[in-house]
Structure formats: structure tokens, C-alpha cells
């Protein structure tokens, strides 16, 4: 008797728990998704509807004019895409190379200076020169103003990725390295022919982290790039946001009808064009990010 009551109470409390549990997760998921839906909806809404009734979750008047405007003069977008792809591909390739070799070296237990070297890298995360002196060094001493290298160099080397990579390398049995040495392979040969082929999932994980950083970067472009033909996609989007805001402000204060110019929906359409590739590849690469974050959180 007593038992059955307690079971009932337990059932009721677990039902309540699962109700709260699902409800919470659904709410968080919906909130995570809504801004994306509003963005897409905004890009397909006619300028007229946005002006009179604002943004909404479902377009009040459908329109493709924003996308038509973007693809009528596609060269700007294509060019910015080109810059973004160039820095992402070059930066990821060089960054992976630099990171993996350094990670291999500091993971070698028979390397006398590995602790010194690890601390030498780690120290840069504890103390740094800050935004101002970094900027001055890039501009004045390395002459990187308006150079694409100013977009590539900052993302090449990251201590957090180095540490994640080191644990990938450490998972390769050290007996492999030793036997390669006994067979007379040099250090470079051991690395490129024995270790590197076994690091595929580590390379994919770190490569994707580096690539995401490059793709989403706008900050370095803002600091260092002057010529519009070197703007990467994210920064182009940012300047467009600023420009259309200024444009519509000027136009409305001068009494010029801006109705026909799809400035509002254009912003949203550009944001969709810039985010599209990430959302498309996201389902396929998500697991690598989960893996990297998990390893990073264990190793600190």
C-alpha cells in the first residue's frame, strides 16, 4: 500500500520532470533558431512591408528584389567571397602545418626542451601586448597595412589549438616513432610518413576550427584593410550594414523616397548569403567541433 503510493508519487514527479525537461530544451532550441528564421524571412520580405509594418517571422509581402539586386551586380559579392575563400584556404593550410609540427615536437617525450617550449607557447596566453601595441607592430614594423597577410597571420597560430593537437598526437603510440628511428628514418620522415597519416581526425578537427575563425573574421579587416577589393565577406557585410543605415537616414531626412530601394531586406539577404555556406556544411562538421571542444576542456 505504502509502496504503491510512493510509486505513484514518483511517477508523477518524473512526469513533471520530463515535462519541464523537454519544455526547457524546446524553448532554448526555438530561441536559438528564431533569429535565423527572422533573417531569412526579412530577406524575402518586400521593402514596402518592412517599412510599414517592420520585420516579422513570416514575410507579409514576399519579394525577391533584395536577392535580385545582389545578383544583378554579382561581382562585389563574388569578389568578397573570393577573398574570404583565399584567406580561409591559405590560412588553414599554413596554420595546420605550423600547429601540427609544433604539437608533434612538444609531444615528444624524448625531446629535452619540450617543457621549456610548451611554456614558451603557453605564456603568450597569460600575458600579451594588447590590441594597441599589436596594431602598431603590424603597421609600423611589419608594414602589413592593407596586405592580405594581415588577415592571414593573426589566425595562424593559436595555443589552444596547439594543446588540442598535442593530445591528438599523444594518442599515437610512441612505439611507432621509436621503431621508425631504429629503422633509420630522420625526424622529418617520421613525422610526414608515419605520424601525419594517423592524425586525420586531429587535422580535420583543428583545420575546421581554424577555417571557421578565418571565415568569420571581420575584425582584422577593419583594423588593417583599406582597399575595398580586399574586403572579406564578413567585413563587406559589416560596411554594408553601416552604409545602408547612413543612406536611409540621409534619404529620409532629405525627403527622398527610399521605398523603392530595398536597403532593409538587402542587409538581411547579404547576411543570408554570408552565413549560407556555414549553415550548409554545419551538419557534416559538427561532430569534429564537439570532439575538439571535449578534448580541449579535458586538457585545459
Amino acid at each position: 500500500m505504502n509502496n504503491s503510493i510512493s510509486v505513484k508519487v514518483k511517477d508523477r514527479s518524473s512526469f513533471l520532470f520530463y515535462f519541464v525537461c523537454y519544455l526547457f530544451v524546446v524553448i532554448v532550441a526555438v530561441i536559438s533558431l528564431i533569429p535565423f528564421l527572422m533573417l531569412i524571412s526579412g530577406s524575402f520580405t518586400s521593402e514596402h512591408a518592412i517599412r510599414f509594418s517592420g520585420y516579422s517571422l513570416i514575410p507579409k509581402e514576399w519579394s525577391l528584389s533584395a536577392y535580385e539586386l545582389i545578383f544583378k551586380t554579382p561581382m562585389t559579392v563574388i569578389h568578397a567571397y573570393g577573398v574570404s575563400i583565399l584567406i580561409t584556404v591559405a590560412g588553414t593550410a599554413i596554420g595546420l602545418f605550423v600547429t601540427t609540427m609544433a604539437a608533434y615536437v612538444i609531444s615528444r617525450k624524448d625531446f629535452k626542451y619540450r617543457n621549456v617550449l610548451s611554456f614558451f607557447f603557453y605564456f603568450t596566453t597569460l600575458f600579451n601586448g594588447g590590441m594597441l601595441s599589436t596594431y602598431i607592430f603590424y603597421i609600423r614594423y611589419y608594414h602589413l597595412k592593407d596586405s592580405l597577410w594581415a588577415l592571414i597571420i593573426p589566425g595562424l597560430f593559436n595555443v589552444f589549438y596547439l594543446l588540442i593537437m598535442r593530445s591528438f598526437v599523444s594518442s599515437v603510440p610512441s612505439a611507432l616513432i621509436e621503431s621508425a628511428e631504429i629503422d633509420g628514418a630522420g625526424e622529418y620522415r617520421t613525422f610526414f610518413q608515419i605520424i601525419l597519416p594517423l592524425l586525420q581526425s586531429g587535422l580535420a578537427t583543428i583545420g575546421l576550427f581554424i577555417a571557421l575563425g578565418y571565415w568569420n573574421d571581420w575584425y582584422n579587416a577593419m583594423l588593417y584593410i583599406n582597399s575595398t577589393d580586399k574586403y572579406p565577406l564578413q567585413y563587406m557585410l559589416y560596411t554594408l550594414m553601416q552604409k545602408t543605415e547612413a543612406m536611409s537616414r540621409i534619404a529620409s531626412s532629405a525627403g527622398i523616397p527610399v521605398m523603392d530601394m530595398p536597403t532593409q531586406s538587402l542587409k538581411m539577404a547579404m547576411a543570408v548569403v554570408a552565413t549560407g555556406p556555414i549553415v550548409l556544411v554545419y551538419p557534416f562538421v559538427q561532430k569534429y567541433f564537439v570532439k575538439g571542444i571535449t578534448i580541449g576542456s579535458v586538457k585545459g
Binding site: P35, L39, L237, K267, A271, Y282, V290
Partner: peptide
């Protein structure tokens, strides 16, 4: 649900700025 909640991590702050403006 995990995928959906993880999605915002992948977009740039520029896009988040667009969301803020949008709202």
C-alpha cells in the same frame, strides 16, 4: 536539439549584430 542549440557558435558576430538590429 543539441545541433540547433550549437548553431549560434558558428556564425560571426557581424551576423549577430544584424540580428540585434533586426530585433
Amino acid at each position: 536539439s543539441q545541433s540547433v542549440i550549437f548553431l549560434p557558435y558558428f556564425i560571426s558576430w557581424v551576423i549577430v549584430g544584424t540580428f540585434v538590429y533586426n530585433i
